[in-house]
Design a protein around this nucleic acid. Structure first.
Length: 515
RNA sequence: GGGUCGGUAGCUCAGUCGGUAGAGCAGCGGACUUUUAAUCCGUUGGUCCCGAGUUCGAAUCUCGGCCGACCCA
């Protein structure tokens, strides 16, 4: 029997076929076998994997609170503590041993003396492995060299770790394994832990900034009947109950604007977008965007607001607005540059005249000269292509590029002074696009016309062109107030603020080819 | 899609001129009651990414493929 519908295949597979598709046997080795044997012994006690140990202290708080105390003070006024964590280091010296435990806050050393914890417990402890989770009750002491240490009166195995950790000193170096087994990377690598703590702090600070400025956080659909709000290839899925095709969203824009129509005049959403594109150091198919919309704002006020937001995030995450990115200084404290596309080109290529940049043939020649293929488009589109070819990567300092052509900005309001360009900006920092915002197109008839243009482009073979969204037009027909909206690439912002070279370094579980 | 570099023990890595596999860590056994990547002695562990070719002989050379990192498009 041949079943072509992939959704149904699972129902018709023979056992053999299902076996063939079952996950491959996990890699086993001598070290794992040894640990399994230890676990088997532990099970025989009937007390394996207990969950009755209540820890009362964390490593960092103990170090903060008691590192200043002298050995004498600690022995005169014994302080009993209960900690738990993963055993990262272990040094056994006959009848006493040291172990280093790692918990959410950091690491702390434990001293285990045979005559304190009993001979039986000490013998067990000697066979525990790096990576095991243990609980310790003890009193604080200072070692010879003054390191705050817990002198154990009780030590218990709480979780047996079956897999050996990477080299205790060199850690996990293999980039691919760091991404595929992020849990191991997090166990082994302080830098990775700090990056993702910073990510959490940055997102919180942005959220607080938005709420503090009167914005309301909302959640709009991740599954769209019509993908919209950006030009990108969508992921396609299927809703069984409604028997309909759905698309993972490429942007929340059209829903957020519907909310402004509804009277939620200041809204924002921080959530995932999905774009069916390749992977690169700057691209992950699912990535996090913040979009925000404010009625009665325009692209100028948006630029001001975005500048303030980024400074706030840097201050909250780093405590400063001037810092290093990949070895080069980045200064967010100075006013961000604001240049039109042509001004940005001329900044890099001062010999190009205004007349030349208005000459279609000149633009095509130069785009080719910079090694890019000329994509079809009008004057504005060619200017943008030349900017991308010769100037975009040079925007190290924060630079707003303004005046994007109408033909590549189907949702943006056209300029009153020049109907060929829009009231739109993109923000570039370290040569990368970080944000994109504009005065929203709130003329329902103009928007309908722009959608028709997009449909023509799609019919002509542009896979990324937009669909016609009739409900969105209907919403606009009820009346969208003059509004400004902006999207900020959160992953890329976090790359900047954590000095990370690749987007995969700031996404906990980046997209990977299957193992 | 093109280029460069890489894939060897659980981890981090050596491996010369082509001569049949090494270290440190981890593990196992032993010594050791204040260590700091503890130390000392002994020891287990290999589909050298896969396939083909050249050769008496391939981790090593050649070709093809797979996977990854980086750069370019």
């Amino acid at each position: 029997m041949t079943v072509t519908n992939p959704i149904l295949q699972g129902f018709f597979m023979s056992n053999a076929e299902q076996q063939a598709q079952a996950p491959v046997q996990q890699d086993e080795n001598q070290l794992i076998a040894e640990r399994r044997a230890k676990l088997a012994e532990w099970r025989k006690t009937g007390k394996a994997f207990p969950n009755d140990f209540q820890r009362e202290n964390t490593a960092a708080k103990l170090l903060d609170g008691y590192s200043e105390k002298t050995a004498e003070e600690l022995s005169e006024m014994p302080i009993e503590v209960k900690v738990a964590g993963r055993m990262m280091l272990k040094r056994v010296m006959g009848k006493a041993a040291f172990a280093t435990l790692q918990d959410l806050s950091g690491r702390i050393q434990v001293y285990i003396a045979r005559d304190k914890v009993s001979e039986a417990v000490y013998e067990d402890f000697k066979h525990w492995d790096l990576g095991d989770i243990v609980g310790v009750v003890g009193v604080l002491m200072k070692t010879k060299v003054g390191e705050l240490t817990i002198n154990a009166t009780e030590i218990r195995l709480l979780t047996k770790s079956l897999r050996p950790l990477p080299d205790k000193f060199h850690g996990l170096a293999d980039q691919e394994l760091k991404y595929r087994q992020r849990y191991v990377d997090l166990i082994m690598n302080e830098e990775t832990r700090l990056t993702f703590r910073a990510r959490s702090a940055i997102v919180s600070s942005i959220r607080n900034y938005m709420v503090g400025h009167g914005f309301m956080e909302v959640e709009t659909p991740m599954m769209h009947p019509i993908p919209g709000g950006a030009t990108a290839k969508p992921f396609v899925t299927h809703h069984n109950a409604l028997d309909m095709q759905q698309f993972l969203r490429i942007a929340p824009e059209l829903y957020l604007k519907r909310l402004v129509v509804g009277g939620f005049e200041k809204v924002f959403e921080i959530n995932r977008n999905f774009r069916n594109e390749g992977l690169s150091p700057r691209h992950n198919p699912e990535f996090t965007m913040m979009e925000f919309y404010e009625a009665y704002a325009n692209y100028h006020t948006l630029m001001d607001f975005t500048e303030g937001l980024l400074r706030h995030a840097a201050r909250e995450a780093l405590g400063k607005e001037v810092f290093q990115y990949q070895g080069r200084e980045l200064d967010l404290s100075k006013p961000f540059h604001r240049l039109s596309i042509c001004q940005a080109i001329q900044r890099e290529q001062p010999c190009f005249t205004d007349e030349q940049l208005a000459d279609v043939e000149f633009l095509k020649t130069k785009i080719n000269a910079f090694g890019e293929k000329v994509k079809p488009g009008g004057l504005g589109s060619l200017q943008l292509q030349l900017f991308e070819a010769c100037a975009e990567a040079q925007c190290w300092e924060p630079t707003f590029i303004i005046d994007y052509p109408v033909e590549v900005s189907p949702l943006a309001r056209a300029s009153d002074s020049n109907p060929e360009i829009t009231e739109r900006f993109e923000l570039f920092i370290v040569g990368r696009e970080i944000a994109n915002g504009f005065s929203e197109l709130n003329d329902a008839e103009d928007q309908a016309a722009r959608f028709h243009e997009q449909m023509k482009a799609k019919d002509a073979g542009d896979e990324e062109a937009m669909y016609y969204d009739a409900d969105f037009i209907r919403a606009l027909e009820y009346g969208l107030p003059p509004t400004g909206g902006c999207g900020i690439g959160i992953d890329r912002l976090i790359m900047l603020l954590t000095d990370s070279p690749a987007i995969r370094d700031v996404i906990l579980f980046p997209s990977m080819r299957p193992e």
